[in-house]
Amino acid sequence: MSILIAILTLGGLTFLLALMLVIANRKLYVYEDPRIDEVEDMLPHANCGACGYPGCRPFAEALVSGDVLPGKCTVSSEEGREAIAHYLGVSVGAEEKIVARLACAGGTNVAKNRAQYEGLGTCRAASLISGGGKGCFWGCLGHGDCEVVCDFDAITMNQHSLPVVDEALCTACGDCVEVCPKDLFSLQPVNHRLWVACKNLEAGDGVLEDCEVACTACAKCAMDAPGNLITMMHNLPVVDYSENHQTQVPIQRCPTGAIVWLDESGEVVKGKESKKIVRKGERRIGYT
C-alpha cells in the first residue's frame, strides 16, 4: 500500500512539473533563427573584432539579419566567405582588403641607436625611458610588441629588427595599431601601394645622421606627383588617396627612399635615384 502512495505522489509531482515546463516552453519561447548557429559555425571563431562587431556570434546575427555582407570578415578564406554567401543567398560583398602598414623603414642596418637599451624587452617599456635608445624619436624600436600581439602570425621581425606584415595573413584587426607606442602602424586598403615609410618630423639632411632612409622633407615627390596627389605637411609628404595614386612617378627622385612602392609580391620598390643600402650588419653607435 505504502509503495503505491509513493508511486502516485511522485508520479503526480512529475506530471505537474512537466506540465509547468511545457507551459513555460510555450509561453516564454524566443524564436531564434537556426541559421545563426549554422553561420557562426562557418565563421573562423577568431573573435578578433576586425569586422566591427564584438565577436563572431554578433557578426553571425548581423549576417543573418542582412545588415552586413560576408566579405566584411577578413579572417575567413575566400571559400569560407563564398560558402556563407551561398548559404544565405546573398552576394559575398567585395570588401576591399585592408592591411596594417608600418610607417618606418629604419631597421638596425640604416638607423642608428644612440644608446644601448637594457631592461624590460618591450617597446612600451623602452619608449618610457627617454624615448628608447633609437636616434630617431619617431622610429620603430624593434622589440617586437606587434609581433607578440598579432594573433594571426602576420607580423614577423626581420633580421634588421623591423616588423614585416604578411599581407595575406593580416586581417586588419588593429591590435598592432593599438600596441605600438610610436603609432607607426595604420590600417590601409591593400591597393594603397604608394607609401611614405617615415614619420620623422625634422627637415634637412641632418636627419640622415640618425637614419639613412629618413625623409629629409626635400619635397621632390610632391613636385613630381601629378595634381595634388602629394602635399607636404609637417615636413612629411602626405598622399591624398582620393586622387589617382596608382603611379610610381613620385618615388623616383626620392634621395633616401622614404617614399616607396609596395609591390604586390611583398617587395619594396625604391626610386631610381634613391641611395642604395648595401649594409647588412648593424649600423653601430657613432658609426656613420
Binding site: 624590460l120 618591450t122 617599456a125 618610457l128
Partner: peptide
C-alpha cells in the same frame, strides 16, 4: 626584477 619599470608601463597602459 625591473619592478618599477614594469609598473610605469602598467600605469601608462
Amino acid at each position: 626584477i625591473p619592478l618599477v619599470q614594469s609598473f610605469r608601463v602598467g600605469k601608462a597602459m
